[in-house]
Nucleic acid binder design. Structure first.
Lengths: 242, 242
DNA sequence: TCAAGCAATAATGTATACATTATGCATGAA
DNA sequence: TTCATGCATAATGTATACATTATTGCTTGA
């Protein structure tokens, strides 16, 4: 368990990570640890143990746990503590369905409202970076992270362009699923990446043309495509291990 | 302010409302009060004042506030307290867009998975109750609440039938918007209610036929229809008051 | 041998004291 | 007057003591 010390005052020099309160930095630390898979699904989160590890009292720990439960990362059973929420394969597939619907909506709104210059720049950079990426010979594990970032930049710009806080919040919830273990199941072959990247180009064009219906359709199909790829990858992995 | 005492042990006989902890009952009490419009949008929620009113210490109050912030009912500014979140008309319209997408998804899943006998029964009762309701001569304010319940029963049954906790959670978030004030703006004329109720019949048929695509389309259009009615009602109300 | 029940222990829930941060007002100088 | 400064006040943030609830393991009785 690699949790960093979340206390601030005791450490002379703070991280530049802008931690306002211990509650906030504890929340970030725990969220990161959960998403990084440092806790097993179903594992119980003991307040006292966490407070010792993070060098804070139980109070900010409890606040962090409550927040993370609200985000769906933990389950809370009164008088029985917090547990890392388990996401089944089916849950993750469902999350993609939800995300597909919401991303579609975001793309539609982005097309309706139009893109700001800065948003266009970010998207075009993401498209360019994607092209560079695809010129490589092979994809290392680190490359997956890299393309993940390029991909996130593209989608994030559209979320921002949708100009809807609620939509962004809901999208964040639908994306914040499945730590580590399940995530790497996703198929990551050249053809898949190529296809998804081409989707990005088409979606961007539709948004530029202010074709809201088309933007929504393409975006929704794009995310559904990832869902399908995931299902394919799973069923392929399942066959050898009956 | 009509907040009830949220403490349990001091009261000999508890409400049957199954309160497990003071945190939980406080959360319920505050959520209900906010949704009932007992706090004005933008109003600050002082921990100490609330703790006095609800006769509990600040600890459960703080837990409740954190939960409600996670649900989107409050905004939290570190070191500056919690505030009742303000939802603009545009926010509410956006919420309907999100809800339309998610309800559509729920209907699609319900059609794919099929309805259990109990779910069918609930939906048919809601359809029947709606018919009875429409036979009335006039609609009193109390009737709005009644039809609201019938409507909620119908939609809720489909949420359950979608068999997706995440979808239900996200739907709850998208519905838990706009207390009191804004909510009553919605057009509530016979033709509107008739139309929406007919939608329900058609949606149910599509689900029964396991026509997932049609169920989704109809449901989405159904909720979009409410959105349109809302926009119409607003622009109508706007004209007299420049 | 097994089940029921009862400590003992450990965890969560709650209250409260203390620490830190924001806010408003008074004071004083430009 | 106007603005800046600093202190008093009040609010939130944090730690901690105490209360309540779960859990565990042991004892006891059948």
């Amino acid at each position: 368990m690699q949790l960093k010390d979340a206390s601030m005052k005791t450490n002379a020099a703070m991280n530049d990570s802008e931690a306002t309160t211990r509650s906030a930095s504890t929340t970030e630390a725990l969220r990161g640890a959960i998403l990084a898979g440092e806790f097993r699904p179903g594992e119980r989160m003991y307040e006292f143990g966490l407070s010792q590890r993070l060098k804070v009292s139980r109070t900010p720990i409890r606040e962090a746990l409550k927040s993370l439960a609200g985000e769906g990362l933990l389950d809370h059973i009164p008088n029985r503590g917090y547990y890392v929420r388990e996401y089944s394969i089916d849950d993750i597939v469902q999350a993609y369905e939800i995300r597909a619907a919401l991303e579609g909506l975001a793309a539609r709104r982005a097309a309706q409202l139009g893109l700001a210059a800065q948003e266009r720049a970010i998207i075009e950079k993401a498209l360019h970076d994607g092209e560079m990426f695809l010129k490589r010979d092979a994809f290392s594990p680190a490359d997956r992270t890299l393309y993940g970032e390029i991909n996130a930049a593209f989608h994030n710009a559209i979320h921002v362009a949708s100009q809807s806080r609620m939509l962004r919040d809901q999208l964040r919830l639908s994306q914040q699923v499945a730590p580590s273990s399940h995530r790497n199941v996703i198929a990551f072959e050249r053809l898949d990446v190529r296809r998804r990247h081409d989707d990005h180009h088409r979606i961007y064009e539709a948004i530029l043309c202010r074709d809201a219906g088309r933007a929504e359709l393409l975006m929704r199909d794009h995310v559904e495509g990832v869902k399908i790829a995931l299902i394919r990858a799973i069923s392929r992995d399942m066959l050898p291990t009956p």
